[in-house]
């Protein structure tokens, strides 16, 4: 019986998603980038890190589809390989934020009292600062690298997940079946995993989808500031920063990486918005 209803509600969500135009567009964009990331070595025409000073600042041509940058690297290949970095950044930092967010939120909501107060105070403080400012503090502490940028962005987004989880825990904590599970002697972690988590999967999925886009955008921003990816890495934000010196001579070099960032973030935002509509039964669309 349980399974039957779960099946139909899943089908319902799926049908609603299919009907939703922005979901289809968003998912297609994401799929497109995933394919590019997987087949990057086949799609790219050059080594994205290979500099060839003799060929610097070339316009678009049959050999260099998007021209070359200031040290003669092929921009097309760099944009293609940049997909790998951005998806990696988005996925890793989202998983990290969810992991810690869920942990902190669950502890705060389940145990309540002083622990709850302490955790949520810290989360509030993090939310009370512009996110890039917090990320810059973390980069100052850890030093500049792509890995540290990922860590910084991950930490910045922990509070959002913690809040979702805490609210969900507070909602179910006093419910009869949770109390019943306690009476039977289920352990705290078991109760959290079997009764609490399933109740907040929907908002977590929505937040995670939007979160990947936000993480990609923030990490690219850090790299654009010269505080993220190492010099020479085919990271979209870093490419924009390096190529903007030559904006007049090679406009394509600052156009292409930006369009890539814009599209991938748009993809996750569209899908996230559509998921929110589909998973939230209160909004009928």
């Amino acid at each position: 019986m349980m399974n039957a209803t779960a099946g139909t509600s899943q089908q319902y969500v799926f049908r609603k998603l299919l009907r939703h135009r922005s979901a289809t567009i968003g998912a297609s964009i994401i799929l497109f980038f995933i394919i590019i990331a997987i087949f990057a070595p086949l799609i790219a025409t050059h080594d994205p890190r290979h500099a060839n000073i003799a060929e610097r600042l070339k316009g678009w041509s049959g050999t260099y589809y998007l021209g070359t940058d200031g040290v003669g690297r092929d921009i097309f290949s760099r944009v293609v390989y940049g997909t790998r970095i951005s998806l990696k950044v988005g996925l890793i930092s989202m998983s990290f934020s969810i992991g810690f967010g869920v942990l902190f939120g669950a502890i705060a909501g389940y145990y309540g009292g002083r622990l709850d107060n302490l955790i949520m105070r810290v989360m509030d403080m993090m939310l009370a600062m512009p996110s890039i400012l917090l990320a810059m503090v973390i980069v100052t502490i850890l030093g500049q690298s792509l890995t540290n940028a990922i860590v910084a962005v991950s930490i910045v987004y922990i509070p959002q997940y913690a809040r979702i989880l805490r609210a969900a825990v507070l909602k179910v904590r006093e419910l009869d079946y949770v109390v019943a599970a306690k009476v039977i002697g289920a352990s705290n972690s078991r109760i959290l995993l079997t009764t609490v988590l399933p109740n907040c999967i929907a908002p977590l999925i929505v937040q995670a989808t939007l979160g990947i886009g936000a993480a990609i955008l923030d990490a690219a921003g850090l790299s654009f500031l010269g505080l993220g990816a190492e010099i020479g890495e085919p990271e979209w934000g870093a490419m924009l920063n390096e190529n903007r010196k030559f904006i007049r001579r090679s406009p394509l070099a600052v156009t292409a990486p930006g369009i890539a960032i814009f599209l991938i973030v748009l993809g996750f935002n569209l899908l996230g918005d559509a998921l929110r509509d589909a998973l939230d039964p209160q909004i009928d669309g």
Partner: peptide, 21 residues
């Protein structure tokens, strides 16, 4: 809607390209 997904550092570069180049 598209404005929200726009990386502002790219928007700035595009504006420079358009209005000062």
């Amino acid at each position: 809607l598209t404005g929200i997904s726009m990386p502002i550092f790219w928007l700035g570069l595009m504006l420079i390209l358009l209005f000062s180049y």
